[in-house]
Design a protein around this nucleic acid. Structure first.
Length: 738
DNA sequence: CTAGGGTTAG
């Protein structure tokens, strides 16, 4: 095909388009800026525009070759426009390899690298094209970005056939390709075979280890590099600093900082940022802040690292300060701030910020969705859960594996086990997290049999359980009192699955023995396990002692607990009860003192009830609710009804420094009782009452609710923190202590 | 060749 022929074809296309008035107008505008071809080409990428511009290029006197290359580049965003542009390109008489390589390079760096491979195949089918060694780095870069391993192998084979494998540029590109296709060993073999390794090769292999999560290997390799002749450049130092941040290796990170200072390495903006990111990721926020405040221009990425650094330490206010100061915000920093709130027990703020982000017309991606769903789990209301589920479905996240995993957990934590199960069952593909989430959902709700059943089904379907899976299933065994089953699972975890138990696993086992009144075994395990017992483990033992009347051991456990957490509610109650019984008034006085001290910082108890898609909040003895009078009337009625079947208010589990009579009054006004009475007034017939409490439910409220479920024949689901109690017919699904 | 956000347990 000749150039003039080509030109004619372009004009014909133009004429067809010209019939439309709209295109005509666009054409006039385009003609008016004829001298700005290049700009137009990068900003107009619809097919009709491309055709117009193509025609203009052919009519104009400017260099058609360079403009055509821009035509291809500007069209790389959609396959239809690219297809058109490539058809033009491939008919172009001059098949200059240098020119083609330039195009490959541009496409491989674009946000749509798959077009590199598209161009590659397109060019290979037009015989005129030949590849030279310069074609391979961009091709391999595109493969790396796409993790398209099969293409990578093909291109590796071709490079080999053409005798290019001794080219260090291609060797390095191959290392990067294997590393990003999760074949780090192959990458390493290639690296070891290189005869001359430059800084780029070293950086590529070190970065490859990082990409595959082997940060410690990356740091070892960096040491190897230093012992060889290679001097680290600033790019490598950036990579290594990032590795330090990922594994939280602050001391190594500081060593590198010193190395930079001692060797007079120029502290360019990249290196400065890498240092700040490293410190922020290691939680060394003072050091990070010092460097950050010294920055002249605060880059998006550094600010985001600061936000997530503060957020991880629970310093959300500082995180928000950085966030608010940012002039330019992108999706990633919004996500960081949202997840910061979600993980810092401020899920409402997270949702508020998400809505604000949407108002700024920023479109969330999958990662944002995971944080927002997690925030909804923490909020715990079904209204929010349904809202975000619908949002996810309507915005194309409904089929994403990780999103579904998060949804399972969310529905479970919002009290709707049925919906969690439905999400789980509808998943076309499941991974360990899906199974673990569902197992844990059952465990959370006290349905041990379903949890254990699912665990066996998971193994039948050849999904390998991990440490977290076992926490869920052991927890379930504890709640169901399945001692032997739990022991079997614990040893199979170690022996068959090769998972070494963590403190949390021991915690589950201690709890299992405690609940089964096997206190000797519990103590034996505490003494032999390779961890120092934590608050949860002492708490299990202490509660068990209380229930089973082991006063001395209980006192010991409570004291150990208070060593670790001097303001622990339960421990103070247990100790003060023991001392009061033994008339040790001095000790009782000491405890009262620490209780008073603690009263200042104590989180206020509140309960929520969700009814007919609305959430109502209650605090102890509050009168804020519109129907307050009705609620207290109902409470009086319920109390007298329950007293007929033997209810006696009990204050033994309550930690307020008051006279006994006042305590009796107050215990009746606990927020969960108010919420429950509101539920009894307002619920639709036959519907279940859902109550969420921010703190642990006291013994009295638990037995109160059990009796209500029997006398009023109503199903009640109560959540305290992340534990659910299903109450019906006077029975609770869990085997919790009070 | 370099830098930032995520889901299961506790």
């Amino acid at each position: 095909m000749t150039f003039s022929h080509h030109c004619k074809r372009g004009v014909n296309l133009l004429e067809i388009e010209h019939r439309s008035k709209f295109v005509g107008m666009a054409m006039d505008m385009a003609m008016a800026s004829m001298s700005h071809h290049h700009q137009l080409l990068t900003s107009h990428t619809t097919l009709s525009h491309l055709k117009q511009l193509h025609a203009q290029i052919l009519r104009s006197n400017s260099n058609p070759e360079s403009l055509l290359s821009k035509l291809v580049l500007s069209s790389s965003s959609s396959s239809s426009t690219l297809h058109y542009a490539l058809s033009v390109f491939s008919q172009f008489p001059n098949t200059d390899t240098h020119f083609s390589n330039q195009l490959l390079r541009h496409l491989s760096r674009s946000p749509t690298p798959h077009n590199t491979l598209f161009l590659y195949h397109n060019l290979r089918t037009t015989n005129a094209f030949t590849l030279d060694s310069f074609s391979f780095p961009p091709l391999l870069k595109a493969v790396s970005k796409l993790s398209a391993f099969n293409h990578g192998l093909e291109i590796h084979g071709l490079a080999s056939k053409l005798g290019f494998l001794s080219d260090p540029f291609i060797q390095t590109a191959l290392i990067a390709m294997y590393a990003s296709c999760r074949r780090i060993m192959d990458a390493r073999l290639l690296f070891d075979k290189m005869s001359h390794r430059d800084a780029v090769a070293w950086n590529t292999i070190i970065d490859g280890y990082c990409q595959n999560g082997h940060y410690d290997d990356a740091l070892r390799l960096f040491e190897d590099m230093k012992t060889s002749d290679m001097k680290p450049d600033s790019v490598i130092l950036c990579t290594v600093l990032s590795a330090c941040g990922h594994v939280g290796n602050l001391s190594y990170g500081r060593t590198i900082h010193e190395f930079v200072k001692d060797n007079g390495i120029a502290l360019n903006s990249h290196l400065q940022s890498a240092l700040i990111n490293m410190y922020a990721n290691c939680g060394a926020m003072e050091l990070a802040r010092e460097l950050y405040d010294g920055l002249l221009s605060k880059h998006l990425i550094v600010s985001t690292a600061m936000i997530s650094g503060y957020a991880k330490l629970g310093m959300v206010k500082d995180a928000r300060f950085i966030f608010d100061q940012m002039i330019e915000k992108d999706l990633v920093c919004w996500s960081a701030m949202i997840s910061g709130y979600a993980e810092s027990e401020q899920p409402h703020e997270a949702l508020k910020l998400f809505n604000e982000m949407l108002r700024h017309r920023i479109v969330p991606d999958q990662i944002t969705m995971l944080s927002v769903i997690s925030a909804c789990s923490h909020v715990g209301t079904l209204v929010n859960a349904k809202w975000i589920h619908t949002y996810a479905d309507e915005n194309g996240f409904g089929r994403a594996l990780s999103v579904n995993n998060a949804l399972i957990d969310m529905y479970a934590k919002c009290g709707n086990l049925g919906k969690a199960r439905k999400v789980f069952e509808n998943m076309p593909r499941k991974n360990v997290i899906s199974w673990s989430s569902m197992i844990n959902a059952f465990a959370m709700h006290g349905d041990a049999n379903s949890a254990i059943h699912l665990f066996h089904k998971m193994k039948e379907e050849n999904t390998e359980p991990n440490g977290i899976t076992f926490i869920g299933v052991l927890y379930a065994c504890g709640h169901a009192g399945l001692v032997e089953e739990g022991q079997k699972l614990f040893s199979s975890m170690i022996n068959e699955h090769g998972i070494s138990p963590t403190r949390e696993h021991y915690g589950c086992m201690v709890d299992l023995y405690c609940r089964a009144n096997l206190l000797r075994k519990a103590i034996e395990l505490i003494e032999t396990m390779p961890f120092a017992p934590n608050v949860i483990i002492w708490g299990s033992l202490m509660s068990a002692c209380q229930v089973h009347g082991e006063i001395e051991l209980g006192e010991f456990a409570a004291k150990q607990l208070l060593e670790l957490e001097p303001t622990h509610d339960g421990a103070l109650v247990v100790l003060s009860n023991i001392y009061a019984k033994e008339k040790r008034w001095n000790d009782v006085g000491l405890i009262r003192k620490s209780m008073k001290h603690k009263g200042i910082s104590k989180e206020k108890a509140c309960s929520r009830i969700e009814l007919n898609n609305k959430v109502h909040m209650f605090m102890m003895a509050d009168r804020y609710h519109k129907q307050s009078n009705e609620i207290y009337e109902k409470l009086n009625e319920v109390v007298s009804q329950l007293k007929l079947v033997g209810y006696k208010p009990s204050t033994s589990g309550i930690l307020i420094d008051l006279e006994e009579e006042d305590k009796k009054e107050l215990v009746l006004w606990h927020s969960e009782k108010l919420a429950l009475c509101y539920g009894l007034i307002s619920r639709r017939k036959e519907s279940c009452i859902h109550i969420v409490k921010n703190l642990r439910i006291c013994e009295d409220c638990h037995s109160f609710m059990k009796l209500v479920s029997k006398v009023y024949q109503v199903e009640i689901v109560v959540r305290d923190r992340t534990r659910f109690h299903h109450l019906s017919g006077g029975i609770c699904s869990c085997r919790d202590y009070w």
